[in-house]
Structure formats: C-alpha cells, structure tokens
Design a protein around this nucleic acid. Structure first.
Length: 364
DNA sequence: AATTCGGGGGC
DNA sequence: GCCCCAGAATT
C-alpha cells in the first residue's frame, strides 16, 4: 500500500477530479436511468449492468421499470413475471436477490431505500460495487464504486500492475478511489470513471489522444497503456452433452419443466432434458427412460432433430434435440401442461429458446 | 482464494 | 476463437 500512497501523491487529485467531472458533465450519454434521480431505478439499473453491457440493458430497463415502477410494485410482484422480465439477460439470481431485497426494504424501511452503507450494503445482491454506485449516484455519498471499468482506468492512471483477477487486488483500487473521489460530486466522479472506461479508456485500444485526464496518466506518459490492466486468464469451460425433448400430447399441449430453486438457471422453465453419458444405451433410449423414471411420461421419441450448442461463461452445453409425443402421463407428474400461448408467459433460458425455435421452424 | 452463476458483442 | 462487460454469492 505504501506503493499506492506514493502513486497518489504523484498526481494532482483536485485537477484530476475537475478534468474528469467536467468531461463527464459535457459528454455523458443520455441513458434511461439518468433521466431522474429515483434511487429505485438507479438500483435496478446497477443490478442489470452487472457484467452486462449498457446497450443490452437499455430495453430490459425500460420494460422492467414500466412493469415494476416502484419498490412496492416489485416487492408485490409474482416471481414468474419478474423472471419473465429478466428472460435472456442472464445471471438470474440477480433479479431473485433484487426482489428479495426490495421486499426487505418495503418491510423494514417502509419502502425507502436506506442511505446507510451498513443497511443498504447488507441487502441481498448488494455487493461493494452496487453499494457505492447506488449510494453515490442516488444520494451523493462519497463512496467508491469499483467495477471493471474503474480498475482498468485507475490501473492506467496510477500505473498499478497487480493482477485485477485476484480478489485482494480490489482493495488496492478501493483505497485509491477512496482517496481520489470528489466529496462535492461523488456521483459525477464515479460515473465519470466508468464512462471514461466505456468510451475512451477501452480495453484493447484506448483513445488516449481524446482523453480528458491524459495529463494525469502514468500509463500514457510511459507508453504502456495497452499493457494495463494485468489480468490472468481463466480456465476453459467444461463441455456437457445433454438430450432434450419437446414434448406434446395428442391435443397439442406442451409439457415443460421448472428448474430447481438453486443452481444454474434457477427457477427458469425448460424442455425435459438430461445429461447423457456414453455407453451401451443410445441417447434416445436414455431420454425415453429418463422421461418414464423422472416424470412418469411414456412418450414416442422421434429421430434426432439437431444439436443446439450453448456457451456459458463456465460451461458448454451440446444439446441433442428430439421431438416427442406423449402417449401416457402420470397424474402427479412434475411437468406442467401448457398451451402454446400459455408457454410464452414462462421464462426460458436462451438455450431452450433455441430448442423451441428449432421446433417452430420444423413445424412450418 | 477459487468457483459458480448468462449472455452478447467486439475484434 | 478469445476477451470483456457498471459483480455477487458460495465454496
């Protein structure tokens, strides 16, 4: 940390703040969550923006805040509808945690989002970044909000060579931004750092010639802006083979499955599927047996219709897709029988939307 | 400290 | 292909 203290002393923090904030106020993008100062909407935007690009978030934000305009509205909403509004955005625990958190705000704080770092920071899904972002933007509190942009920008400004993939490196940036943040305009300071990272100080080829804080930047001065930040690589994702069945009965109803309440894609809906293994039984046999043993469904499974590949951050699914007709189904099956129209109300992960598309295309 | 959580876009 | 994105929770 002594190292960081020296780096901080070397820059003129007041001038840095002024240059950054003036640039931000001049150049900031017009974004839906910047139209007012509603702490709830700012919170929603920050949760959506976790690991997600601005352009991706915009339509989801518009729809979500229209459907659930207040803490109260989201607290009272049906979880199926909340998940449907998040469908395709990914990291679905974000929205389950958000709804859980707004319920706590409604009950404990009368619907007013608390200003204290302890109270707001202890809400579900509110980590160090979201805490600083919401409290600084909504309430003008001088709390750092260190995300990927900020680590990249600050690593270049100060010349920090620690690996940003390591958990403890965050503390260095927390400390540095705590020292640098403007007490008068913490919202503009935090958003300015992020905006700079998004527009100017980009990962591969930063536009240093357009940078409002170029004069304060160690990396630019040394010509090593493309070397920073240092980030170690992650291991390759594992590959899994699955088989899935689009199941219908003779009346044209579909049979869909709700995923468990924890783990991957928790509480989302899907077509019946299992992870297959190489061995004596064919994929088709494994699927048929699984439907019988798992759901009490006797179905005629046709030939394989194709393979859907879906890539997660940590996992690859290769899903062999089959169409099946249900001949007999146990009354107490955990599958849900729905019409084509009803199925649209359920939130499906993109991987299973691909499967549905395969079926729809085939049917034409 | 490392892994698990989604999905899309840039190059 | 690989990398990254306004990260948090769990192990």
């Amino acid at each position: 940390m002594e190292n960081i203290v020296d780096k901080l002393i070397a820059i003129n923090i007041e001038n840095f703040q002024t240059d950054l904030i003036n640039w931000y106020e001049r150049e900031k993008r017009s974004l839906p969550w910047r139209l007012d100062q509603d702490p709830y909407k700012i919170w929603v935007s920050e949760v959506m923006l976790q690991q997600t690009r601005v352009e991706t978030v915009i339509p989801y934000f518009e729809n979500f805040t229209k459907q659930f305009p207040t803490v109260q509205a989201l607290a009272e909403a049906d979880e199926e509808k909340v998940l449907k509004a998040w469908e395709g955005l990914g990291y679905y625990s974000r929205v389950r945690n958000l709804q859980s958190a707004v319920k706590e705000v409604a009950e404990k704080y009368g619907g007013t989002i608390p200003r204290s770092t302890e109270e707001f920071g202890s809400l579900k899904g509110v980590g160090p970044y979201t805490k600083g972002a919401v409290l600084s933007i909504a309430y003008q509190l001088p709390i750092p909000a260190v995300d990927g942009n900020v680590m990249r920008v600050v690593s270049r400004i100060l010349g920090i060579w620690d690996d940003i993939a390591k958990a403890k490196t965050r503390k260095i940036f927390d400390y540095a931004t705590e020292q640098m943040i403007s007490k008068e305009k913490p919202s503009e300071f935090n958003q300015g750092l992020m905006e700079l990272g998004a527009i100017i100080c980009t990962p591969k080829s930063p536009s240093c010639m357009l940078c409002p804080v170029q004069a304060h930047c160690n990396a630019f001065a040394g010509g090593y802006e493309r070397e920073l930040p240092v980030k170690s690589k992650k291991k390759k994702p594992a590959v899994k083979s699955l088989a899935a069945a689009v199941l219908k009965d003779e009346d044209g109803n579909y049979y869909i499955h709700k995923r468990p309440s924890s783990g991957l894609l928790a509480n989302l809906w899907e077509f019946a599927n299992l992870e297959t293994e190489k061995g004596n039984k064919t994929e088709r046999e494994q699927l048929t047996d699984f439907l019988k043993d798992g759901f009490g469904v006797e179905a005629d499974i046709g030939e394989i219709q194709g393979v859907v590949e879906h890539i997660f951050t940590h996992l690859v699914w290769n899903i062999s897709v089959y169409f099946g007709t249900i001949k007999h189904c146990r009354e107490d099956t955990s599958l849900r029988k729905v019409t084509r129209e009803e199925m649209e109300r359920y939130a499906f992960p993109v991987s299973h939307q691909k499967i549905r598309n395969m079926y729809e295309l085939d049917r034409r």
